[in-house]
């Protein structure tokens, strides 16, 4: 019983690590205050679920989830290329709302508020990942590859260019770099991570509906990234574990179940405000968000 619970928590933590590390690439390293991340997560989840139910093999729908999400990432960057700072943030927030209402209303494909039930557990090379323990293994491998990839990317020369976009875009342009291309690439990689995180989430929970991809979830991921610290992958991983475990304590307090959800949201919001007010760099952050 208790092992099952811990495995469940670890799987969720793994999914959110992929999500948060991806978001940190766009917010932390490239300085794009991207509030559309949860939409990419949702797009990934729906893409993967729909393809899989249509009979596409898991490994293909898993990657397509990332690819489709990153195409939308490209679309978003192209659409918002003239916007900066809070206007960019608002446009991406708007993107999240639009995607949410498409999930809710495009009933022929997404079944609207009913959601998509019965998403099969994945099958890899003839091996069915049926129980949670092997799913945890699969998630761990994915997390490892994603974190290694983002880490390699961030510490490479290319990563330095991304950080330069954040720190001084005009200077970088003067040096003859195409900053728009850098932003687009960073956003696409970031959205790809969100997309495969969505796929991991959908196939684990086996049921998705639009409410998993709404505003409150954006706050959760943004809080994780802010608390962990901008441009710190270590920070994001640590903060994911911390943030997902804190509300679990609520289970052991005698709260009625209808109060757990709001209390959890309040905790996240207060944590976010505290971090912004008291320690804007987060726990391991290297930079303040300009």
């Amino acid at each position: 019983m208790i092992e099952g619970y811990i495995i469940h928590l670890l799987i969720l933590i793994g999914v959110y690590i992929v999500l948060a590390v991806g978001l940190n690439l766009s917010i932390g390293f490239t300085g794009l205050l991207n509030l559309g991340h949860i939409a990419f997560f949702g797009i990934g989840a729906y893409t993967s679920a729909i393809l899989q139910l249509a009979g596409v093999p898991f490994i293909i729908s898993f990657f397509l989830a990332g690819v489709v999400a990153s195409l939308f990432g490209l679309l978003l960057v192209v659409g918002t290329r003239n916007l900066k700072g809070d206007y960019f943030a608002l446009a991406t927030l708007g993107f999240s709302f639009v995607v949410y209402s498409v999930f809710l209303n495009w009933t022929q494909v997404t079944r609207g508020p009913l959601g998509i039930p019965g998403i099969p557990k994945p099958e890899l090379f003839g091996l069915r990942i049926a129980d949670n323990f092997s799913y945890l293994l699969f998630v761990t491998i994915t997390v490892f590859f994603v974190v290694m990839f983002v880490w390699k990317l961030a510490t490479s020369r290319y990563g330095k260019l991304l950080e330069a976009v954040r720190d001084d875009e005009i200077a970088l342009r003067l040096l003859g770099k195409n900053t728009f291309k850098l932003k687009a690439q960073s956003m696409m990689v970031s959205a790809f991570c969100a997309g495969i995180a969505g796929s991991l989430f959908a196939h684990y929970i086996t049921y998705i509906d639009p409410s998993s991809f709404f505003l409150s979830e954006i706050i959760l991921v943004v809080t994780i990234v802010m608390i962990g610290g901008l441009a710190s992958i270590r920070g994001s991983i640590f903060a994911t574990v911390l943030i997902l475990l804190i509300p679990e304590a609520l289970r052991f307090v005698a709260l009625p179940s209808s109060m757990i959800g709001p209390t959890r949201q309040i905790i996240y919001a207060v944590l976010l405000l505290c971090v912004l007010l008291l320690r804007p760099r987060g726990l391991f952050g290297k930079v303040d968000l300009e």
Binding site: L33, D86, A89, V222, A269, L272, L289
Partner: peptide
Amino acid sequence: SSNAILLVASIGLMIF
């Protein structure tokens, strides 16, 4: 703090 930070804070307030 930048406007973007203030925006994030206001969304936090809203959720709260």
